[in-house]
């Protein structure tokens, strides 16, 4: 089963999303800040990363940039999650190397669609 790295500093959001993902059969590893996220991305080799953008220590923009700059992690798809649908955010996320983008509060079915599409693309 696919392994998802969820990088999110808000405990409730982390709990909710991880439980819902687990119920859908994903294996979920979690990090509360960008720095730890980056470390887990390297050590856990997840199939996909869900990255909150406003994170302590290292923010999501920078963490994504580093994920995309690392040889081992470059090919892991990243979905950026931001708190509000700001047009600038989408561009910024894509500029930082994110593969897709979604807004919080998460519309779970829509997010699942995006996850599955990216995982599918990875297999091809």
């Amino acid at each position: 089963m696919a392994k998802i790295l969820l990088v999110e500093d808000n405990e409730m959001n982390r709990d909710m999303l991880s439980r819902r993902l687990e119920r859908k059969g994903f294996e979920v590893v979690m990090a509360p800040d960008g720095q730890q996220g980056l470390e887990l991305a390297a050590s856990e080799a997840p199939d996909l990363i869900l990255m909150d953008m406003s994170l302590p220590v290292l923010d999501g923009w920078e963490a994504t940039r580093r994920v995309k700059a690392g040889d081992a992690t470059r090919n892991i798809p990243v979905i950026a999650l931001t708190a509000h649908a700001m047009v600038g955010d989408r561009d910024k996320a894509l500029d930082a190397g994110c593969d897709d983008y979604d807004t919080k509060p998460v519309d779970f079915p829509r997010l699942l669609g995006k996850i599955e599409m990216l995982l599918q693309r990875g297999k091809e």
Partner: peptide, 8 residues
């Protein structure tokens, strides 16, 4: 953030 938790 708290609203997201309520909705979620």
């Amino acid at each position: 953030t708290p609203l997201n938790a309520i909705i979620g």
